[in-house]
Protein backbone atom coordinates (compact mmCIF):
# COMPACT_ATOMS: atom_id res chain seq x y z
CA UNK A 1 0.00 0.00 0.00
CA UNK A 2 1.60 3.22 -1.11
CA UNK A 3 1.37 6.41 -3.07
CA UNK A 4 4.00 5.93 -5.73
CA UNK A 5 5.36 8.56 -8.06
CA UNK A 6 7.56 7.16 -10.79
CA UNK A 7 9.71 9.22 -13.14
CA UNK A 8 7.10 12.00 -13.23
CA UNK A 9 7.62 14.74 -15.76
CA UNK A 10 5.27 17.72 -16.10
CA UNK A 11 5.27 20.93 -18.08
CA UNK A 12 3.33 24.15 -18.03
CA UNK A 13 0.94 24.82 -20.92
CA UNK A 14 3.67 26.95 -22.52
CA UNK A 15 5.96 23.94 -22.60
CA UNK A 16 8.26 24.88 -19.71
CA UNK A 17 9.24 21.70 -17.93
CA UNK A 18 8.82 21.96 -14.14
CA UNK A 19 9.06 18.35 -13.03
CA UNK A 20 11.96 16.54 -14.62
CA UNK A 21 11.62 12.98 -13.48
CA UNK A 22 10.45 12.75 -9.86
CA UNK A 23 10.37 9.32 -8.24
CA UNK A 24 9.07 8.84 -4.72
CA UNK A 25 7.17 6.18 -2.84
CA UNK A 26 5.17 6.96 0.29
CA UNK A 27 4.03 3.74 1.92
CA UNK A 28 0.98 3.79 4.16
CA UNK A 29 2.03 4.49 7.74
CA UNK A 30 4.93 6.77 6.83
CA UNK A 31 5.44 10.49 6.80
CA UNK A 32 7.71 11.89 4.12
CA UNK A 33 8.86 15.48 3.91
CA UNK A 34 10.02 17.29 0.81
CA UNK A 35 12.15 20.34 1.31
CA UNK A 36 13.76 22.54 -1.24
CA UNK A 37 14.35 26.10 -2.33
CA UNK A 38 11.74 28.31 -3.98
CA UNK A 39 11.04 27.30 -7.55
CA UNK A 40 12.32 23.75 -7.13
CA UNK A 41 8.94 22.28 -8.15
CA UNK A 42 7.62 21.21 -4.72
CA UNK A 43 4.23 22.88 -5.06
CA UNK A 44 3.91 21.76 -8.66
CA UNK A 45 4.48 18.18 -7.56
CA UNK A 46 1.63 18.46 -5.06
CA UNK A 47 -0.71 19.90 -7.69
CA UNK A 48 0.20 17.29 -10.28
CA UNK A 49 -0.52 14.54 -7.73
CA UNK A 50 -3.94 16.17 -7.15
CA UNK A 51 -4.55 16.32 -10.91
CA UNK A 52 -4.37 20.09 -11.53
CA UNK A 53 -5.08 20.70 -15.20
CA UNK A 54 -2.63 23.57 -15.72
CA UNK A 55 0.23 21.10 -15.62
CA UNK A 56 0.64 18.57 -18.37
CA UNK A 57 2.19 15.29 -17.33
CA UNK A 58 4.48 14.27 -20.16
CA UNK A 59 5.98 11.08 -18.73
CA UNK A 60 5.85 8.85 -15.66
CA UNK A 61 3.03 7.61 -13.47
CA UNK A 62 1.28 8.23 -10.16
CA UNK A 63 -0.13 5.06 -8.62
CA UNK A 64 -2.35 4.81 -5.57
CA UNK A 65 -2.22 1.41 -3.86
CA UNK A 66 -1.12 -0.08 -7.14
CA UNK A 67 -3.71 1.60 -9.37
CA UNK A 68 -2.59 4.14 -11.94
CA UNK A 69 -4.47 7.40 -11.31
CA UNK A 70 -2.94 9.36 -14.20
CA UNK A 71 -6.21 9.39 -16.14
CA UNK A 72 -8.37 10.33 -13.16
CA UNK A 73 -9.91 13.80 -12.82
CA UNK A 74 -9.19 15.97 -9.80
CA UNK A 75 -12.39 15.02 -7.99
CA UNK A 76 -11.96 11.32 -8.77
CA UNK A 77 -8.49 11.39 -7.23
CA UNK A 78 -9.89 13.06 -4.13
CA UNK A 79 -12.61 10.47 -3.78
CA UNK A 80 -10.02 7.74 -4.38
CA UNK A 81 -8.22 8.93 -1.24
CA UNK A 82 -5.82 11.76 -2.07
CA UNK A 83 -6.08 14.98 -0.10
CA UNK A 84 -4.19 18.13 -0.96
CA UNK A 85 -3.94 20.75 1.79
CA UNK A 86 -3.45 24.00 -0.13
CA UNK A 87 -0.69 26.51 0.45
CA UNK A 88 -3.16 29.29 -0.43
CA UNK A 89 -6.65 27.95 0.24
CA UNK A 90 -9.36 29.58 -1.86
CA UNK A 91 -12.25 31.56 -0.46
CA UNK A 92 -15.72 30.32 -1.38
CA UNK A 93 -18.10 33.22 -0.66
CA UNK A 94 -21.62 32.33 0.38
CA UNK A 95 -20.85 28.65 1.02
CA UNK A 96 -20.67 27.85 4.71
CA UNK A 97 -17.87 25.69 5.98
CA UNK A 98 -20.33 23.14 7.28
CA UNK A 99 -22.11 22.89 3.92
CA UNK A 100 -18.85 22.73 2.02
CA UNK A 101 -17.44 19.83 4.01
CA UNK A 102 -20.80 18.15 3.88
CA UNK A 103 -20.88 18.46 0.07
CA UNK A 104 -17.40 16.94 -0.06
CA UNK A 105 -18.47 14.01 2.13
CA UNK A 106 -21.72 13.63 0.20
CA UNK A 107 -19.73 13.30 -3.03
CA UNK A 108 -18.25 10.09 -1.59
CA UNK A 109 -21.61 8.45 -1.03
CA UNK A 110 -23.58 6.43 -3.55
CA UNK A 111 -26.49 8.24 -5.24
CA UNK A 112 -29.55 8.45 -3.04
CA UNK A 113 -27.65 8.00 0.20
CA UNK A 114 -27.67 10.97 2.57
CA UNK A 115 -25.27 11.99 5.30
CA UNK A 116 -26.58 11.57 8.83
CA UNK A 117 -26.70 15.16 10.03
CA UNK A 118 -26.40 14.43 13.75
CA UNK A 119 -23.37 12.18 13.34
CA UNK A 120 -21.87 14.67 10.91
CA UNK A 121 -22.02 17.60 13.31
CA UNK A 122 -20.77 15.47 16.19
CA UNK A 123 -17.74 14.48 14.16
CA UNK A 124 -17.20 18.04 12.90
CA UNK A 125 -17.32 19.55 16.37
CA UNK A 126 -14.92 16.96 17.78
CA UNK A 127 -12.35 17.86 15.17
CA UNK A 128 -12.92 21.58 15.54
CA UNK A 129 -12.36 21.24 19.27
CA UNK A 130 -9.06 19.45 18.67
CA UNK A 131 -8.01 22.24 16.28
CA UNK A 132 -9.24 24.85 18.77
CA UNK A 133 -11.61 26.31 16.19
CA UNK A 134 -14.58 28.30 17.38
CA UNK A 135 -17.99 26.78 16.52
CA UNK A 136 -18.88 29.92 14.61
CA UNK A 137 -16.58 28.73 11.83
CA UNK A 138 -19.21 26.20 10.75
CA UNK A 139 -21.56 28.99 9.62
CA UNK A 140 -18.90 31.23 8.13
CA UNK A 141 -18.23 31.14 4.41
CA UNK A 142 -15.26 28.93 3.51
CA UNK A 143 -12.05 30.85 4.20
CA UNK A 144 -13.73 34.20 3.62
CA UNK A 145 -12.14 36.78 5.87
CA UNK A 146 -10.11 34.06 7.61
CA UNK A 147 -6.60 34.90 8.77
CA UNK A 148 -3.74 32.93 7.23
CA UNK A 149 -3.61 30.69 10.30
CA UNK A 150 -7.36 30.11 10.30
CA UNK A 151 -7.24 29.06 6.65
CA UNK A 152 -4.53 26.50 7.37
CA UNK A 153 -6.42 25.12 10.34
CA UNK A 154 -9.46 24.89 8.12
CA UNK A 155 -7.47 22.82 5.62
CA UNK A 156 -6.55 20.39 8.37
CA UNK A 157 -10.17 20.29 9.53
CA UNK A 158 -11.26 19.30 6.01
CA UNK A 159 -8.49 16.72 5.88
CA UNK A 160 -9.60 15.18 9.16
CA UNK A 161 -13.22 15.09 8.06
CA UNK A 162 -12.49 13.50 4.68
CA UNK A 163 -10.18 10.91 6.24
CA UNK A 164 -8.02 10.36 3.13
CA UNK A 165 -5.56 7.51 2.54
CA UNK A 166 -2.81 9.88 1.50
CA UNK A 167 -2.36 13.47 2.62
CA UNK A 168 -0.27 15.93 0.67
CA UNK A 169 0.32 19.14 2.60
CA UNK A 170 1.73 22.05 0.65
CA UNK A 171 3.56 24.50 2.93
CA UNK A 172 0.98 24.05 5.64
CA UNK A 173 3.38 25.83 8.01
CA UNK A 174 3.75 29.02 5.98
CA UNK A 175 2.15 32.04 7.56
CA UNK A 176 1.64 30.33 10.91
CA UNK A 177 2.86 31.65 14.23
CA UNK A 178 4.27 29.15 16.67
CA UNK A 179 0.99 28.60 18.55
CA UNK A 180 -0.97 28.01 15.36
CA UNK A 181 1.78 25.71 14.10
CA UNK A 182 1.49 23.58 17.23
CA UNK A 183 -2.27 23.29 16.81
CA UNK A 184 -1.96 22.33 13.15
CA UNK A 185 0.72 19.77 14.05
CA UNK A 186 -1.57 18.35 16.72
CA UNK A 187 -4.22 17.77 14.06
CA UNK A 188 -1.79 16.15 11.66
CA UNK A 189 -0.27 13.95 14.36
CA UNK A 190 -3.76 12.84 15.38
CA UNK A 191 -4.16 11.52 11.86
CA UNK A 192 -0.99 9.43 11.92
CA UNK A 193 -2.01 5.89 11.23
CA UNK A 194 -0.53 2.68 9.85
CA UNK A 195 -3.15 2.96 7.10
CA UNK A 196 -2.27 6.46 5.98
CA UNK A 197 0.68 7.98 4.17
CA UNK A 198 1.59 11.66 4.39
CA UNK A 199 3.70 13.98 2.32
CA UNK A 200 4.72 17.28 3.88
CA UNK A 201 6.05 19.95 1.61
CA UNK A 202 7.88 22.64 3.45
CA UNK A 203 10.45 25.30 3.11
CA UNK A 204 11.61 25.24 6.70
CA UNK A 205 12.75 22.61 9.10
CA UNK A 206 10.62 24.16 11.88
CA UNK A 207 7.50 22.19 10.95
CA UNK A 208 9.44 18.94 11.32
CA UNK A 209 10.11 19.70 15.00
CA UNK A 210 6.39 19.15 15.52
CA UNK A 211 5.61 16.54 12.91
CA UNK A 212 8.40 13.98 12.87
CA UNK A 213 8.96 12.60 9.37
CA UNK A 214 10.27 9.11 8.64
CA UNK A 215 12.05 10.29 5.51
CA UNK A 216 13.22 13.62 4.17
CA UNK A 217 13.77 14.39 0.49
CA UNK A 218 15.35 17.42 -1.04
CA UNK A 219 14.03 18.75 -4.30
CA UNK A 220 15.93 21.01 -6.63
CA UNK A 221 15.22 22.06 -10.19
CA UNK A 222 12.42 19.60 -10.70
CA UNK A 223 14.15 16.52 -9.30
CA UNK A 224 14.67 14.84 -5.97
CA UNK A 225 18.38 15.28 -5.45
CA UNK A 226 18.82 13.79 -2.03
CA UNK A 227 16.93 11.55 0.37
CA UNK A 228 17.64 10.63 3.95
CA UNK A 229 16.29 10.39 7.48
CA UNK A 230 15.04 13.23 9.70
CA UNK A 231 18.65 14.34 10.23
CA UNK A 232 18.78 15.58 6.64
CA UNK A 233 16.33 18.36 7.53
CA UNK A 234 18.62 19.53 10.34
CA UNK A 235 21.60 19.47 8.05
CA UNK A 236 19.73 21.59 5.50
CA UNK A 237 18.68 24.03 8.18
CA UNK A 238 22.25 24.38 9.29
CA UNK A 239 23.97 24.58 5.92
CA UNK A 240 21.28 26.08 3.69
CA UNK A 241 20.30 24.81 0.26
CA UNK A 242 23.61 25.89 -1.23
CA UNK A 243 25.34 22.87 0.22
CA UNK A 244 23.43 20.76 -2.30
CA UNK A 245 25.48 22.36 -4.99
CA UNK A 246 28.77 21.15 -3.51
CA UNK A 247 30.08 18.36 -5.73
CA UNK A 248 30.87 16.07 -2.78
CA UNK A 249 27.22 15.95 -1.81
CA UNK A 250 25.69 15.79 -5.28
Amino acid sequence: MSLKIDNLHATLENGTEILKGVSLEIPAGEIHAIMGPNGSGKSTLSKVIAGHESYIPTAGTVTLDGADISEMSIDERSRAGIFLAFQYPNEVPGVSNANFIRAALQSRLPKGEEIDAVAYYKSLYEKMDLLEMDRKFTARAVNEGFSGGEKKRNEILQMMMLDPKYCVMDETDSGLDIDALKIVAKGVNAMRSPDRGMLLITHYQRLLDYIKPDHVHVMSEGRIVKSGGPELALELEEKGYDFLKEPALA
Partner: peptide
Amino acid sequence: ADEEIFYLQARGIHPTQARQLIARGYSVE
Protein backbone atom coordinates in the same frame (compact mmCIF):
# COMPACT_ATOMS: atom_id res chain seq x y z
CA ALA B 1 -11.88 31.05 -12.10
CA ASP B 2 -10.39 27.60 -12.76
CA GLU B 3 -8.53 27.82 -9.44
CA GLU B 4 -11.83 28.12 -7.56
CA ILE B 5 -13.15 24.99 -9.26
CA PHE B 6 -9.87 23.21 -8.57
CA TYR B 7 -10.23 23.82 -4.85
CA LEU B 8 -13.70 22.29 -4.68
CA GLN B 9 -12.78 19.45 -7.02
CA ALA B 10 -9.77 18.67 -4.86
CA ARG B 11 -12.29 17.94 -2.10
CA GLY B 12 -14.06 15.39 -4.28
CA ILE B 13 -16.86 17.60 -5.55
CA HIS B 14 -17.81 17.03 -9.20
CA PRO B 15 -17.01 20.11 -11.34
CA THR B 16 -20.66 20.66 -12.33
CA GLN B 17 -21.69 20.65 -8.69
CA ALA B 18 -18.68 22.78 -7.78
CA ARG B 19 -19.81 25.45 -10.23
CA GLN B 20 -23.32 25.37 -8.83
CA LEU B 21 -22.12 25.59 -5.24
CA ILE B 22 -20.07 28.65 -6.15
CA ALA B 23 -22.97 30.18 -8.10
CA ARG B 24 -25.35 29.51 -5.22
CA GLY B 25 -22.89 31.10 -2.81
CA TYR B 26 -22.68 34.08 -5.13
CA SER B 27 -26.40 34.78 -4.60
CA VAL B 28 -26.16 34.46 -0.83
CA GLU B 29 -24.57 37.89 -0.35
